[in-house]
Each structure stands twice: as C-alpha cells, then as structure tokens.
C-alpha cells in the first residue's frame, strides 16, 4: 500500500448514537479529552528545548489543560521533538504502543516530516507517519513556542470535533505500519506489547489489521498471553 492510498483511508468515525443522551455524553467526554491532555515529550532531538518555555510562565500550557506526564501509560499525546534515529524509533514505537487510547502523536520539527537536516543520513528515519499514525506536524527548525501552542490548539479542536482518531488507523492498518517497521528492523522485530490482541479485545480489527507482515510477526513472536490467575 502506498502512502497516497493510506491518506485516503477514512477511519470510520463512531456513528452518532441514536440516543440523544448518549450523544451528549460522548460530546462531554470528547470535550474533556480536548481540555485535558497529558503529554509525554519524548525528547528525541533539539526541539524539546522549546517545550519548557511553552510550559512555564511565559506561555503556560496548563491553562489549556496540558500537563507533562512521565510514563506512556499516563499520557495522551506523544510529542516527538526532533530527529528520530532508527534505534530511537524502536523505543518510540514501544512507547506509543504502551500508551492508552485515544492517543495522539505530534511530530515537532522538520526532522519528523522528512528527516530535516538529516535527510541523507543512513541512521535516521525520515517520515514518522510511516511507522506511527501522526495527527499533527509542527514544522520548523525549531518551531517557536507560539507555533507549539498553536499546534496544540489545533489538536484540541480536532479532538473536540472528533476528527483526531488516527490512532484507530494503527489498529486497523497494523499490517502496513508493521511492514514499514520490519523493513527497518528486520523480520525478528517485535515489541512486548500485543497490538493484534488489543485490536481484537477492543473491536478495532480492520480489514488490514492482519496481512503478510503480521504473519511474519506471529512466526517469531514469543507468547505474550497475560499471566492469568490459576486455581
């Protein structure tokens, strides 16, 4: 599947429920999501230096409900702030997979768009959204805090209207992402997380969740069933 095809994929957004009360409830949850974003800033490169001013007294992200968090479990947004070397990319992917959905990825700096100034380096990944579904890019080398805030507000808007659910793409088109990952990391690539199991458990299986690449994965994958209680 080529990039253009992927972009055309429409993620089936949750159909409006018939019960008006349920709709209100959904709207409320979406609103709260947009007003309370915990971010995990994965400080891969130089862009991270623009986040402290955005968080502290000058720009104060907290008035938008944005807080820094420490572990992927707690976070909603993954900020990739600069070049991603292939070795780092592995960790980024694991971190992304460990986050609880709905989760959003923001690529900050030009490096996440096309490799930036490292475009001809053999060691850095170029297009972040081949490996992870990216919701928003904030280009620039590096973008100023104003741009970061602007981007955050755009993301808030997208969450509020329910457009920002590219995280579902990761489950429904896992085969595509896995294929790109395997191209870089080899066929033995696997993370301790179990995306297919998760997709099944949350009914997020799509037509392209499984495919040739997931077959390779399932051959090498060590069993990852959770330890069930046994009597």
């Amino acid at each position: 599947m080529t990039q253009n095809e992927l972009e055309k994929i429409e993620i089936s957004t949750q159909p409006k429920r018939t019960n008006p009360l349920a709709n209100v409830f959904d709207d409320l949850v979406r609103f709260c999501r947009s007003r309370s974003m915990f971010m995990l800033h994965y400080c891969t490169g130089c862009g991270a230096i623009e986040l402290p001013p955005a968080m502290t007294s000058r720009f104060d992200m907290e008035r938008l409900g944005i807080q820094p968090m420490v572990t992927p479990r707690q976070a909603d947004i993954l900020l990739i702030t600069g070049y991603v070397s292939i070795k780092t990319l592995k960790r980024v992917i694991l971190t992304y997979e460990q986050m609880g959905s709905p989760k959003y990825v923001i690529g900050i700096c030009s490096c996440t768009v096309n490799g930036g100034m490292y475009w001809q380096s053999y060691a850095t990944a170029k297009k972040l959204d081949e490996y992870l579904p990216v919701d928003l890019y904030i280009a620039g080398c590096m973008p100023r805090p104003e741009a970061v805030m602007e981007g955050m507000q755009q993301l808030m808007q997208k969450i509020k209207t329910g457009e920002a659910d590219s995280w579902k793409k990761y489950y429904s088109h896992y085969d595509y992402y896995l294929g790109n990952q395997q191209q870089l990391f080899g066929n033995n690539w696997q993370t301790p997380t179990d995306i297919i199991g998760e997709a099944e458990s949350y009914q997020l299986m799509g037509p392209q969740t499984l495919g040739e690449h997931t077959k390779i994965l399932q051959q090498v994958q060590k069993p990852l069933e959770p330890l069930e209680m046994k009597l």
Binding site: Q3, V113, N114, G115, W119, Q120, S121, Y122, A125, K126, K127, D129, E130, Q183, L184
Partner: peptide
C-alpha cells in the same frame, strides 16, 4: 564506497514538502 544518499533514496519514502 557506501553511498549514503543513494541508500536513503532506496530505503525511505518522502512526503511532499
């Protein structure tokens, strides 16, 4: 004799800038 740029071109895709 390793052409980094060629390798990058062969390996990665680019998005429209």
């Amino acid at each position: 004799d390793f052409d980094s740029e060629q390798w990058v071109m062969d390996t990665f895709n680019w998005q429209d800038y």
